[in-house]
């Protein structure tokens, strides 16, 4: 479901750079994320995908350039409030081991003063949406399977009904069977909710499956941006073709 109306973009990256110890993790990257669309960040390991996502959620501040959310730049003053409108899911889930699944999901809402009834209702709604078993809600993260943890992490990110979801390899740690199931469920959820989604993956097929737009990165630089077809049909440079071919060969090798 591509965006129908041309609202202002949900995110706007303007010439963003971030350097760690003299190494440029992200170098002069500019692109927009359209509201209601799913954008996938892809590229080889270490190319700066996670760094870019952290810049978008304000965990990092750019050395140069500007990250805009809605129509304002993210600043130290507004970042905490803006985060309540973003849901962030990281690779291993990042669940709090000292809290039950239920408390992981409801922590922020309770802190913001939601009533107990409202918290319970929302938690049940989300566990139905993500098909998380109700009896798992009162277990601790170590008592859950990897797929269940991933669902809790997603529920936690969705609790405050954020405008955008930022997901760093949300399916990376799962075995292929569960992964395929969850891919489908996730896409259904995104469609149902109509949220803006930014997702990191290094699997091109996953990128194609989810992405309205794909942002291909290499060594911190944006190589090409557009729908999957444009990457195949009009590669911006030789690397794009190489990357697509390498992914297809890896899959054929795996399927054989």
């Amino acid at each position: 479901m591509p965006p129908t109306d041309e609202l202002s973009p949900a995110f706007e990256m303007r010439d963003v750079s971030k350097t760690f110890d003299g190494v440029a993790a992200v170098a002069g990257v500019s692109f927009n994320v359209a509201a209601g669309s799913t954008t996938v960040l892809i590229g080889p390991s270490g190319c700066g995908k996670s760094t870019l996502l952290r810049l978008m959620v304000g965990l990092l501040t750019p050395d140069r350039g500007e990250v805009r959310f809605g129509d304002a730049p993210i600043t130290a003053a507004n970042v905490t409030a803006l985060r309540h409108r973003m849901g962030y899911v990281i690779q291993d889930g990042g669940l709090f081991p000292h809290l039950t699944a239920r408390r992981n999901v409801s922590l922020m809402a309770s802190h913001l003063g939601w009533s107990a009834d409202r918290v319970t209702a929302r938690t049940e709604e989300l566990s139905a949406l993500t098909q998380f078993p109700a009896d798992g809600l009162d277990r601790f993260p170590t008592q859950l399977s990897g797929g269940q943890r991933q669902r809790v992490s997603l529920m936690r990110a969705l609790m405050l009904d954020p405008d955008v979801l930022l997901m760093d390899e949300p399916l990376g740690a799962l075995d292929p069977m569960i992964r395929a199931d969850l891919q489908q469920e996730l896409r259904d959820i995104f469609r149902t909710l109509g949220k803006t989604v930014v997702m990191v993956t290094h699997d091109l097929r996953e990128a194609r499956y989810f992405g309205d737009a794909i942002v291909l990165l290499r060594d911190g630089r944006l190589v090409q941006e557009g729908p999957f077809g444009s990457l195949v049909d009009e590669p911006a440079e030789a690397f794009v073709g190489d990357f697509v071919r390498a992914q297809q060969m890896a899959r054929e090798g795996a399927d054989a």
Partner: peptide, 17 residues
């Protein structure tokens, strides 16, 4: 773990909370 710290911050918890 850094991931726990990151998710707490990204949730929008103030540093005191």
């Amino acid at each position: 773990p850094a991931s726990t710290w990151e998710s707490a911050t990204a949730l929008g918890l103030s540093s005191g909370a």
